[in-house]
């Protein structure tokens, strides 16, 4: 108890220590839920008032791999996410260019209309998407689920890209023209390097959105297009928490890898995306 009191006194004396302590508590608040999942996934016989599981085991992971087709699910999720990224980017580049660089009357209004899907709860139009997909046999196809994701990914991609294109300095393009570069060479040597960070940010954002998307997937998936979030949901429903935990850990690994791969290239804030736009 004296140690705790000593620490308390130190905190009251030093503002820095107080802030560090608060930040540590904050990090605990964010990370302990994941720690709980990890502990649950490797523990056996963890009942009653125990801080740690009494016995460690990897059985739940074996179960998780045997019961659920992890490889298949990860593949589904990645394929759908990549399709969504591809389609959103292809849609957003011309539209973002027009919005960012062309003098369009009513540009603000047009932008807010295009962003409308982000303002309506996804479940509201997911109902309509599902009914349309049932009619057109897009249910339970990768392209179908990806299309559903595009409905909310594309608006943000357009938002990010139009801002990127708008920031392009007209004089640089003119300078390149004056230097004798034709439009294609201008694009390759001047425009492309300048817009690359924006395009990358938009793709990363689209990818994480699609990878984590639950509502629209739940309304359009089938037995061949089960994705990571949907599988987690189904597992939680099944009620075997140890197995569910093991599965979650396996399924979360790709998103952690993505996070670590990109956090050096792109400011982490970009992952939450376009908050200035609304």
């Amino acid at each position: 108890m004296t140690l705790a009191r000593k620490y308390l006194n130190a905190i009251l004396r030093s503002r820095k220590l107080l802030i560090q302590t608060l930040l540590l508590c904050f990090a605990l608040m964010i990370f302990t839920p994941f720690l709980m999942i990890v502990l649950r996934s490797v523990g056996r016989g963890w009942f009653g008032r125990l801080w740690l599981p009494p016995e460690l085991t990897l059985d739940w992971y074996r179960w998780a791999v045997e019961v659920t087709n992890i490889v298949e699910i990860t593949k589904n999720t990645l394929v759908i996410a990549l399709l969504a990224v591809l389609m959103s980017t292809v849609i957003a580049i011309p539209t973002g260019w027009a919005l960012g660089r062309r003098n369009i009357p009513g540009r603000e209004l047009l932008m807010s209309i295009l962003l409308l899907p982000r303002m309506i709860p996804p479940i509201a139009f997911a109902l309509g998407v599902a009914q349309i997909f049932y009619r057109t046999d897009l249910i339970n196809t990768h392209i179908g689920v990806a299309l559903a994701h595009v409905s909310i990914c594309a608006p943000f991609a357009i938002l990010i890209l139009s801002a990127t294109f708008e920031a392009l300095d007209e004089r640089l393009l003119e300078a390149s023209g004056v230097c004798g570069a034709n439009p294609i060479r201008t694009f390759i040597h001047v425009v492309f390097p300048l817009i690359l960070p924006g395009v990358l940010a938009s793709m990363i954002f689209t990818f994480t959105t699609s990878y984590n998307e639950f509502t629209l997937t739940l309304m359009t998936y089938g037995k061949d297009t089960v994705t990571l979030p949907v599988r987690t949901y189904l597992a939680i429903g099944e009620g075997y928490w140890e197995v569910t935990s093991a599965m979650s850990i396996l399924l979360i690994i790709p998103s952690i890898i993505v996070l670590f791969m990109i956090q050096r290239q792109v400011a982490p804030e970009k992952l939450v995306g376009g908050f200035k736009g609304v």
Binding site: I30, F34, N212, S245, S255, P268
Partner: peptide
């Protein structure tokens, strides 16, 4: 930098997994 990454973690991992961890915690 670590705390900045911490701050956005809930938006980057699937919400369902976060919810599972919270339920356990």
């Amino acid at each position: 930098r670590f705390y900045r990454l911490t701050m956005i973690t809930p938006r980057v991992v699937p919400g369902l997994i976060g919810a599972l961890g919270l339920l356990l915690l």
